[in-house]
Nucleic acid binder design. Structure first.
Length: 546
RNA sequence: GCACCCGUAGCUCAGUGGAUAGAGCACUGGUUUCCGGAGCCAGGUGUCGCAGGUUCGAUUCCUGCCGGGUGCGCCA
């Protein structure tokens, strides 16, 4: 049809010419024209059979190596130290994790960087709050330069209750805010006592985060943050000023990023505020300097809330203008939509607060445990295995419910949906993998191991399943190109459905015809492989049984 | 005011110029002496926000309008 447009010919005529060309191609069992010029191709079962065997035996599942070992940095997660992780961190973590895993499969050397918010005003609020409450602590003795206690004076629970109070106090009282700002400035100068206390807050927060992320099966190669980029700032700004890219404007040092042909207004990126302190744009730009120095990445992907899009455009423009990031390094803000409540506003609990990520996971686990009990499953399993299953089911439910939404759109937080186990859900996908594992174990017990085959016997349901399995590399490439995990989520569901349909209609172990039986076993093993790989790209681990 | 995102079935969402616009939930019926019923099969639902335009063809691209959300120099 598009060819007709280019050639300015009747699409039907072009279709006929193409069909004539393909008619005798041995790949196709049937070539026909439909409607205004659609060409329907039906591959032969020999061709499909050969292709499926190739796919099954391919180590990389026929996914093209587009990355060629180049470095891709995925910046995601981005929690702040001293603040509890809430459900809002869910998307940033799991979308980023999936994008990173997908880029790895297409051949990139990937590094996930958590990019902690550990150097901002919120840390000044917390530290000054401690000083107000515990002025006797050694950290607040301005004459003391070293020898601070090694044991943290605080726990994560202390931080979680203290931060909201410190924040509230600062926001509602100008004088209190001035104290927070002053503490922030002192901290950023690495005043010894403050810095030692900051280090404790950092360590305690990071330990708690690691638990949260491990529960979600999210892992970072780099635990860097704003504080790590600070050392790059002074030289960077000096260089930019010498080059004339950064100039003084209204008392601040800024980079203008507006272009002649822009339709809208782009505010300049502020490097130093009037009072001489830095902003997060400064840190983000310095972080690019650091990343270029350390890794010369081909891509830096930021998985951050869509609302920060303008900010990233400013940073990216500044990075190009200054030459900090060469044109060969792709800078992309893969933004995601906000999690809204039923009222269309950013999600809040009924009490008006935020729901902690831990609590959401706990609810999912409770529901999964209850399900195990009700269905009389796993009475004979060990307590450890039951706990592991409940955890995996809960994580699958939560992550899949989120990841199946397209990245950019806002979506409605629905607790029932996030902890639902039926229909288009994570647990449904796990269930399919578990059924296959169980079946393959039975086959092994009956000494009917599936073998390497040279040809498959493909009837209706086998073909349907096989065609779906064959889509794997295309789906991976699409998800990688657009940074859209939801196409993978949708695909794993379609594979599961195709398998379930096949399974419901075809007997396997008690099939008499040996060729058919072997083909079906082969497809089962292949489905399991494709499903588990797809789920792995989504960051969803599967249990052995459930 | 300007810019960006969104508007698709009762609800939650897919749908990157193609055929009769699809899933899940909810609702109804069927399905288990047989490999795991968290399953399978069947049933029907649409002014694709509205109005124009481009195109052989528009849910998709363009323009305008309506409705919702978000962002817009010294917070992150």
């Amino acid at each position: 049809m598009p060819a007709a447009k280019i050639a300015k010919k009747n699409p039907r005529a072009i279709a006929e010419a193409i069909v004539a060309e393909l008619q005798d191609d041995p790949l196709f069992a049937e070539v026909s024209i439909a409607g205004p010029g659609f060409i329907n191709l039906k591959v032969t079962s020999q061709m499909l059979s050969a292709h499926l065997i190739e796919l099954a035996e391919s180590e990389n599942k026929l996914v093209a190596n587009t990355g060629q070992g180049q470095m891709a940095i995925v910046d995601y997660g981005g929690p702040n130290t001293a603040k509890p992780m809430h459900v809002g961190h869910l998307r940033a973590s799991i979308i980023g994790e999936s994008i990173k895993r997908t880029l790895k499969l297409i051949g990139y050397d990937t590094k996930g960087d958590i990019h902690l918010g550990d150097w901002g005003t919120h840390m000044g609020m917390v530290i000054s709050e401690f000083e107000i409450r515990h002025p006797e602590w050694p950290y607040f003795d301005k004459s003391k330069k070293d020898g601070f206690p090694e044991e943290p004076p605080i726990t994560i629970q202390d931080l979680e209750t203290l931060y909201p109070q410190a924040s509230q106090a600062s926001k509602s009282d100008e004088d209190r805010m001035a104290i927070s700002r002053a503490a922030t400035a002192e901290l950023q100068k690495k005043q010894p006592g403050y810095y030692a206390l900051w280090q404790h807050c950092f360590n305690v927060s990071v330990a708690a985060m690691k638990n949260n992320f491990a529960a979600l099966d999210v892992y970072f190669e780099l635990w860097l943050g704003e504080s790590n980029a600070q050392d790059y700032i002074p030289d960077m700004v000096t260089r930019l000023q010498e080059k004339g890219d950064a100039i003084e404007d209204q008392g601040a040092i800024v980079i203008h990023v507006q272009r002649e042909d822009d339709k809208k207004e782009y505010p300049p990126l502020i490097l130093y505020k009037r009072d001489g302190s830095v902003m997060y744009g400064t840190t983000d730009l310095a972080t690019i300097v650091q990343r270029m120095d350390d890794f010369s990445p081909a891509k830096i992907i930021y998985v951050v809330d869509q609302r920060q899009h303008l900010h990233f455009e400013q940073v990216f423009r500044a990075a190009r203008i200054s030459g900090i990031a060469p044109e060969t390094t792709e800078l992309t803000h893969a933004g995601f939509g906000t999690m809204n409540g039923e009222d269309g506003k950013p999600f809040k609990t009924r009490a008006g607060g935020v729901m902690k990520l831990e609590d959401l996971i706990k609810m999912g686990i409770e529901k999964a445990t209850q399900r195990l009990d009700e269905a009389n499953i796993g009475q004979d399993y060990s307590a450890e295995e039951r706990a592991d299953i409940a955890h995996k089911v809960a994580i699958a439910a939560i992550k899949f419910a989120d990841l199946q939404n397209s990245r950019t759109a806002d979506y409605v937080f629905d607790l029932d949906r996030l902890t639902s186990f039926e229909g288009k859900t994570g647990p449904y996908l796990l269930y399919q993998t578990v059924r296959i594992k169980s079946l393959l174990k039975k086959a092994a017990a009956q000494n009917v191991e599936s073998k390497k085959l040279s040809a498959l016997h493909l009837a209706e349901f086998e073909t349907q399943l096989g065609l779906t399995l064959a889509e794997f590399p295309n789906v991976v490439e699409l998800a990688a190109k657009n940074y859209t995990p939801h196409v993978l989520a949708d695909y794993t569901y379609r594979v599961s459905q195709a398998f379930s349909s096949f399974y419901g209609n075809c007997h396997i172990l008690n099939e008499d015809d040996e060729d058919i039986k072997q083909t079906r076993l082969y497809l089962c093993a292949m489905t399991l492989d494709v499903l588990e790989r797809g789920l792995d790209l989504l960051g969803i681990p599967t249990p052995e049984r459930m």
